[in-house]
């Protein structure tokens, strides 16, 4: 497994950047030739993580959100989304579906979506220091498999 490409992105915790972040990550993973469904899964998971940082990490205040993404030649994608916000006291509770600290318009499904749309999810957090969400997904290499068949 070899690293094909890596990118780092830092942007302000503004809600307009939710679209920017998921679009940037989806463009970055394109060389792996994902299906439309795989791409939609990645975009949704990134959108959830970035939204969490804006709403919960920084509680709508100012801050920076960082994304590090890596793609590997075997189809592996690793996306790490970090904030330096208020952190999560109880990660297990925060990850329970339908749990929401803000209630109202929030469905409390962010982590459930990340978990179900990606292959791996790891959340680390420290109160008053920030939260880091690492997600992985494996894309089946269709074009590579085809090439290997033609030129074994």
């Amino acid at each position: 497994m070899e690293l094909m490409n890596e990118m780092n992105l830092t942007f302000s915790s503004k809600s307009m950047n939710e679209n920017f972040a998921r679009t940037a990550v989806s463009a970055f993973v394109l060389p792996l030739d994902p299906t439309i469904t795989e791409l939609a899964d990645i975009k949704t998971a990134v959108s959830e993580a970035v939204t969490n940082s804006i709403i919960h990490g920084y509680e709508y205040g100012e801050g920076q959100i960082g994304i590090n993404a890596k793609i590997y030649d075997n189809g592996r994608i690793v996306i790490k989304i970090k904030d330096k916000g208020k952190g999560i006291e109880n990660i297990a509770q925060a990850m329970e579906p339908l749990f929401s600290t803000v209630g109202g318009e929030r469905a409390g499904l962010g982590f459930a979506v990340m978990q179900s749309f990606m292959d791996k999810l790891k959340v680390t957090s420290k109160v008053n220091c920030g939260t880091s969400v690492t997600m992985e997904k494996y894309i089946i290499r269709r074009s590579k498999a085809l090439n290997d068949d033609v030129n074994p």
């Binding site: 959108s47 499904l109 979506v113």
Partner: peptide, 12 residues
Amino acid sequence: FMDSSGIGLIMG
């Protein structure tokens, strides 16, 4: 495109 904010919108 829709993420879980759309679900919150439906529920609300």
